[in-house]
Each structure stands twice: as structure tokens, then as C-alpha cells.
């Protein structure tokens, strides 16, 4: 009996290596989904709605930046968004780790800041975008502020959690070796909280991408958010979908890179899955 007897396995006439089998199933599913998308849009939706064939046709000129002058280019937009995303992640991670560590180790900082951090974490940060245009004008500072905030909050909270749940044994050992506070903070608390950083990182990536695209839309900044809305409004949906796919792949790629980094840098950490 298998461990999960309730699963249906489709009958197979020949055995494949499990990896190959999985890949085949996934590719086949992808093909089925594309066909469904194509047919449903073709039959049921207005002509300008994107479907796989039209997106494929649009790919060459989009990727070659062949667009009418005055309209946003794909690579220019992609570059802007990607750079903003990494800037936000960098700022958010550094600030988040520092503040999270501080809150975790210093009771006073915890008490003072906890309410604010929790409130900002719960709040959808895109609520702040319009008001930021009043503070920073219609500039890229708005996007930077939003993505930094978006990355900062989950990292800070996770590092705080991780630091708070640091087993006291570790600290006791350090203290018995007369460690100074910075030894404890950066030599023990920081590495111990790295798994929590990684957990918060996934969330941070999601929030950064949403924040960037919404900010670009509202501020009319060069970027994928603006590009997508612009092309959507001018009935260039196939071009738009290229950007959507890029964003999807970007999210996946950053997460995959983070997972890889986890395994390389933290071989001692076992994700309980």
C-alpha cells in the first residue's frame, strides 16, 4: 500500500524514470493549458485579447524594442523595474535585518516599534503610493520608497521572530566565552536568524514586485507596471503579455536563486517543508 492510498495514478504502459515522467506531465499540461487559452479566447473573447499565437507573433518585435516612438519599450521598462526591485530588496534586507535584530535583542526597541512594524506589515503598502506622490512628487523615489518598505517589513518581522526564538543555550555559551554584544548579535543571532530571513524573503519578493508595478502605474514611471497598463489600454495586449510573462519568470527566478543560496550558504538548515 502506498503511503497516500487515496491518489489516482493513471495507468502507464511503460515505466519511465520519475524525473522524466514528471517533466513530461508538466510539459503536456503546459501544452494543454496553452491550447485551452488559445481556443477559449479565439471563440469567446474580443479580437484584441491576447492569446498564445498572437503573443508568440509579438515576441520578436517586443524583444527587439521595435515599437512606435513615444511608446514604452520592453527592455527599457524591464531594466527599470528589475533595478528598482533589487534596490528595494537590498535596502529592505539590510534595514530589515538590522531593525529586526535590534527589536529582537533590545526589549525597549521591541516595545517601542512592535506596534508600528505590525501595523505597516498588515497594511497593503500600495495604500501609501498616492500619498507618496504628494511627498516625493511624480518621481522614481515613490517606487523606491514603496519597494524598500515592501521588502523591509517581512524581513524585519521574520528576523525579529528568529532572534526572539534564539535558544538561550547559544547565548549562554557565547557569554561563557566572554563574548561582547556585537559578537552575540552578529556572530550568533544573525546566522541563527538567516533561515527566517529566507522565509521572509519570499514574501518580500512578492511585495516588491507588486509595489513596483503599482507605483509605476500611478506615477507613470518607466517600468513594467506602466508598460503593461499602457499597452493594455492601447489594445496592444500581446505586447503586454510579454511583460506579464517576464514578471512571472522574474518572480520565479528570484525565488529560485534565494533557494539555491539557502542550500549553499546554509547547508546546516533543514527546511521542515
Amino acid at each position: 500500500m502506498s503511503a497516500v492510498p487515496q491518489e489516482i495514478a493513471l495507468p502507464r504502459t511503460f515505466a519511465l524514470s520519475p524525473r522524466l515522467e514528471r517533466m513530461l506531465i508538466r510539459v503536456a499540461t503546459g501544452v494543454v493549458l496553452l491550447v485551452l487559452w488559445e481556443l477559449l479566447v479565439r471563440w469567446l473573447a474580443p479580437a484584441f485579447v491576447a492569446r498564445p499565437v498572437t503573443v508568440a507573433r509579438a515576441l520578436p518585435h517586443v524583444l527587439a524594442n521595435h515599437v512606435p516612438p513615444g511608446t514604452p519599450t520592453f527592455w527599457g521598462s524591464a531594466e527599470a523595474t528589475v533595478i528598482a526591485a533589487f534596490e528595494g530588496l537590498a535596502i529592505g534586507v539590510i534595514a530589515g535585518v538590522l531593525v529586526g535584530l535590534t527589536m529582537g535583542r533590545l526589549r525597549i526597541a521591541d516595545r517601542l516599534l512592535r506596534f508600528y512594524v505590525n501595523a505597516f506589515f498588515a497594511m497593503p503598502i500600495i495604500a501609501m503610493v498616492p500619498v507618496m506622490t504628494l511627498w516625493f512628487g511624480f518621481s522614481s523615489s515613490v517606487r523606491l520608497a514603496i519597494v524598500s518598505l515592501g521588502a523591509f517589513l517581512p524581513i524585519c518581522l521574520n528576523v525579529y521572530d528568529g532572534t526572539r526564538s534564539l535558544p538561550t543555550n547559544f547565548v549562554e555559551v557565547a557569554q561563557s566565552y566572554r563574548a561582547r554584544w556585537w559578537n552575540v548579535w552578529f556572530g550568533i543571532a544573525l546566522p541563527a536568524s538567516l533561515p527566517y530571513v529566507l522565509a521572509g524573503f519570499r514574501l518580500a519578493v512578492g511585495r516588491v514586485l507588486v509595489g513596483a508595478t503599482v507605483a509605476e502605474y500611478i506615477v507613470s514611471l518607466k517600468g513594467l507596471g506602466y508598460y503593461i497598463v499602457y499597452d493594455g489600454r492601447t489594445f496592444h495586449q500581446p505586447d503586454m503579455m510579454v511583460a506579464v510573462l517576464f514578471l512571472a519568470l522574474l518572480g520565479v527566478a528570484i525565488n529560485a536563486a534565494a533557494d539555491l543560496a539557502t542550500r549553499r550558504l546554509l547547508p546546516w538548515y533543514r527546511r521542515s517543508g
Binding site: R26, T213, I228, Q237, V244, A248, G251, I254
Partner: peptide, 20 residues
């Protein structure tokens, strides 16, 4: 894989499509 991809995608990007 497609679900994980959608999980990592900002759904904001799909709004114009849904609008149409």
C-alpha cells in the same frame, strides 16, 4: 510549476487582461 509561477507573479500585471 504553473501554480508556483502564478504565486510568484504580481497579480497586478493581469488586471488589464481581466479588464478586457
Amino acid at each position: 510549476p504553473y501554480i508556483l509561477m502564478l504565486y510568484a507573479t504580481p497579480m497586478f500585471a493581469l488586471i488589464p487582461l481581466l479588464l478586457s
